[in-house]
Amino acid sequence: MLAEEGEGYTPPGSGDFKLPPLVDNLEWFTKPYLMALVSVGILVALFYFAARRPQLVPSRLQFAGEGIYGFVRRDLARDIIGSNDFLKFLPLIFSLFIFIALNNVFGIIPFIQFPTMSLIGFPIALTLIVWITYNWVGMRRQGVVGYFKNMMFPPGVPSWVYILLAPLELVSTVFVRPLTLSLRLFANMFAGHLLLIVFILGGEYMLVEGEGVVKVLSIGAFAMGIVMTFFELLVQLLQAYIFALLTALYIAGAMSEEH
């Protein structure tokens, strides 16, 4: 919570996302950077211990790990990419899902309370990986010419429509897809965090600076903050799911010959 106290109410804005560096001489080493590193450690440890000694009657940790893995494997990878090829891409999709999910949920865990993905650099990096993967897969599978031909000139369309369709398909697949993939994640986390700050800081200001009825009304703001926190949990997990789902969809689209 970075707002200045005292001199009137400063509404929260995009400035609240510029965090100071943790160590003096390292400009880039901020809290979200540390969180991303820690999240990788947590996930590696969690799934290492979940899969270390698999038993017929699973322990609680093994059950949880297998539940998450099974969900991604069944509902995301196999159903969309198809049972022939999905195993190659399962590590990528699974890693993306758990990494984004944990980093998003950091946004509502007490004392951490900052979603890593609300800084645009993190979604862009993840999207670059996805973008390179599906284009690479498409070119490997169909050849460079075949990939762009299948993308821009899908069969079964009257020929004059291609004047409009070909550039649209090219722009949509090569440029708009990565743009929206990263922006969707970023914008959802950014807006969600901003929403929580608005309610909590607004409630705090009403409680501290307000008089009489306004003090009492701050209960409403805090209650709304709590409700929104649970709503955020839903949005955060949903965004991780959508990111992994779209990754699978784009890979599946690049692999299939027909559109």
């Binding site: 159903d79 929206t180 922006l183 914008a187 779209l246 969809l249």
Partner: peptide
């Protein structure tokens, strides 16, 4: 369900892209 779900989410992603462009331009 399993056939419709990817189609629905692809359409959702395309429609939401417009809203995201608006958000970016607003900032």
């Amino acid at each position: 369900r399993s056939v419709l779900q990817p189609i629905a989410f692809l359409g959702f992603a395309l429609a939401e892209a417009l809203a995201l462009f608006g958000l970016v331009l607003a900032f």
